[in-house]
């Protein structure tokens, strides 16, 4: 028995080591490439120039804004729908699950092509109507709302899974009934009892959404907008070393954001316990 346990431990360690090498080697190579001065020494030129490169700050801020708004919109759409289905119409659960999973089977390129089709539609006689002006407004390069719509769709399957997993761990129906029995109305029961117990699930959904938005390239690029991922790509074409430096910085920023979000969630949980 002890030998078997040792073998399992060794196997786990080996798998962990291989995975570690698989992820670490390319990153170490990239990091080395970005600081190599071709003379046997190191230089941080690429990183220092990065901060002054045109478009760096704007694209990064745009990406973070898009991520934040996408998270808010997604949760505002998804949480009430999932809770309503669980509390009032359990038979709708499979319908919501299928709808939320649909984006998984639609390729991003196909989705983007569909969006382009919608955005291009609009006969001349509609030019002065609010509908036409809305279609124009959502394509504002300073804050392209159309990207948020696309990102919400793309993140639906992941966010739904995270929230659904959280709901499975909580007896929402009984908790809401207990809260109502204590004098809380429907909304108050949801805000004071259900949502605090879904904090981890909501955080997971937000983390997955932020990761998706910060890394998404295809839709933004095809639609002609310049969030951080697109800026990295276009910048890398002129200066290879800076491109890799930006990629490394991008990874670092994404990790920091996700770690920060996780830490906030864990911190509150730990304080509670």
């Amino acid at each position: 028995m002890a030998r078997l346990i040792n073998r399992i431990r060794f196997g786990r360690g080996l798998v962990l080591l291989i995975c570690g090498i698989y992820f670490a080697v390319p990153m170490a190579a990239s990091l080395w490439f970005s600081i190599d001065d071709n003379k046997g020494g190191t230089t941080f030129r690429a990183y220092t120039e990065l901060l002054n490169a045109p478009g760096f700050t704007d694209s990064l801020v745009l990406s973070l804004e898009l991520a934040a708004v996408t998270v808010v919109v997604l949760l505002l759409l998804l949480v009430p729908a999932v809770l309503a289905a669980r509390l009032g119409a359990p038979r709708l659960r499979p319908v919501i699950e299928v709808m939320c999973s649909m984006p998984l089977v639609v390729p991003v390129v196909a989705l983007t092509t569909g969006i382009i089709g919608v955005l291009r539609w609009g006969p001349d006689y509609l030019q002065d109507t609010p509908l036409f002006q809305t279609i124009v407004a959502i394509q504002d390069p300073k804050f392209p709302i159309v990207l948020i719509i696309a990102y919400v769709l793309m993140a639906l399957p992941f966010a739904y899974r995270a929230i659904d997993a959280g709901l499975r761990g909580v007896d929402v129906v009984t908790l809401v009934e207990a809260a109502r029995n204590c004098g809380a109305g429907w909304l108050r029961a949801v805000f004071t009892v259900v949502l605090p117990n879904l904090r981890s699930a909501l955080l997971n959904a937000a983390v997955l959404t932020v990761a998706l938005v910060l890394g998404e390239f295809t839709t933004a690029s095809i639609l002609g907008f310049t969030p951080f991922s697109v800026w990295i790509n276009s910048n890398g074409k002129s200066d290879g070393q800076m491109s890799v430096a930006v990629s490394m910085l991008s990874l670092l920023i994404v990790w920091l954001v996700l770690l920060l979000m996780s830490a906030v969630g864990r911190g509150r949980k730990a304080a509670r316990s």
């Binding site: 009934e177 207990a178 004098g183 605090p196």
Partner: peptide, 15 residues
């Protein structure tokens, strides 16, 4: 929530 009836549930229902 306005019925003035306290209830103890079968399943553990503490928040």
């Amino acid at each position: 929530h306005k019925r003035d009836a306290g209830m103890v549930f079968q399943s553990y229902s503490l928040f």
